[in-house]
Design a protein around this nucleic acid. Structure first.
Lengths: 247, 247
DNA sequence: GATAATGTGTGACGTACCGCACAATTTTTT
DNA sequence: AAAAAATTGTGCGGTACGTCACACATTATC
């Protein structure tokens, strides 16, 4: 299902636009935007529901626009020619994805495949529209640069970890990273990560079996647990201490 | 013959705004900037010479500003706690680095360590100044977003490759990537990459020995060669055919 | 040109991790 | 509640690749 098909100027869509303006404040790059600018942009944005497991965009598709996560979670994956895949990044409430398609001349394809990890609501904004918006509202451009800076930084660290660490260390580190990402409250207990072991393995860049073995240990120690296809971090504190061990 | 020497020997001490302004056109994000904006920015920019091997910034240092490569080449590295390092990216004529420090609130440290691979001239611009510039010249902000988009895209692919491919495939792919990066003319022969095998190994994220073994094969086949601590791609075409082999 | 310093080639060996196989468990569908 | 589908746990090779060792080559330093 392609978002473009929803773009009929229907009555329903307008109603959504009004409501959306408020929702947009939840997106990091719109957080500090002026009321006026925001309302103009919100007119152009579509709000779309997606079910868990649905592929939102594919890395082989022509890039039409940028997405914002209002609720739910999205995994971004890349494949090699043999069909093996890796989860490059996980996007969550407030995040942006497919930003890498902005102003692209080299290639018009999406940078990665995006698939829903949980049911959720996404906002879609046409590439051209956002580019126009970035031209007109310097504040927005700044926020975008800030957001991309953070992404680059994070990605750099991820790259180092995938290249240098062994499976055990990568697993623990990934658990910690995702734990923080999905930690809603300030508590450090019972953090839920909506991934199966299989999926988690593709974040780490290893096999299901290898992760399963590490998880067995961590479960035995009472640090994590699994329930209904979710990973649950029981004790984030203990988890973090494992990182500094020379073992 | 080499513009570096030209610069270093006689002109470096007399660079004036006018000259710098011209040089700045070589930097991708300034390419299409208006004359006026450019001359204002050029007043704030410092041009600095660096020798091969010199560390320009460290990932543990406070981020003071952003760099632009006028000539020479720079490697960006990240280390883990054991001191193992990986080359995250290589920057070259026209490139920007340390952009990830822009508008950063989370951490004020540089995202990576930068070291000169060849003698060269770098431009330095204070973080605040550039941020101010991005506010004032929307065209500049756009260029920056475009540049960061490309970086993100590239990094995503690199991450996939490091995670999924074996050493042989990674080596060939990296050779191809860097080959294109350092290919000055349109020819596809005798492309020089200013890296030793040791350094190349840290780009790939593997050991010196493993790369050496792969290189032995490629040399035997006449695809690459080494001369004075540089890798030379003799036959880019044959190199590319190796990528598609199911072998 | 002599000496030091740095980078390279290759064998031998150990091991972390992948891939397979299959049973056990959990979740979804009917 | 039973059947089907998907996910997980674990044992067991095989192997790609890291590590160590040392000889050789190439480049810097004096």
């Amino acid at each position: 299902m392609n978002p473009i098909h929803f773009l009929k100027d229907s009555y329903v869509n307008r109603i959504e636009a009004v409501q959306t303006a408020d929702f947009l404040r939840k997106i990091v790059i719109f957080k500090d935007l002026s009321e006026k600018s925001l309302s103009l942009i919100s007119k152009r944005i579509q709000s779309l529901p997606f079910k868990k497991g649905v592929q939102v965009i594919g890395e082989d598709e022509l890039a039409k626009g940028v997405f914002f996560v209002h609720s739910g979670a999205v995994k971004l994956t890349k494949q090699d020619e043999n069909g093996n895949e890796i989860i490059v990044c996980i996007k969550q409430k407030g995040d942006v994805f497919a930003e890498a398609c902005l102003f692209s001349k080299t290639s018009e394809l999406y940078p990665a495949t995006a698939t829903m990890l949980q049911d959720g609501q996404l906002f879609f904004l046409d590439k051209m529209e956002l580019e126009k918006g970035l031209h007109e509202y310097p504040e927005l451009a700044i926020q975008m640069i800030r957001y991309m800076s953070d992404s680059l930084r994070e990605m750099t660290s991820t790259l180092r970890d995938t290249a240098l660490l062994d499976v055990y260390a990568k697993t623990v580190k990934t658990l910690e990273r995702l734990g923080n990402k999905f930690n809603t409250s300030t508590s450090r207990w019972n953090i839920e990560i909506p991934l199966t072991i299989q999926e988690f393995a593709t974040v780490v860049g290893t096999t299901r079996e290898s992760v399963s073995r590490v998880f067995s240990k961590l479960k035995k120690e009472g640090i994590i647990d699994m329930k209904s296809r979710k990973i649950i971090i029981l004790d984030m504190c203990r988890l973090c201490t494992l990182l500094n061990k020379a073992y």
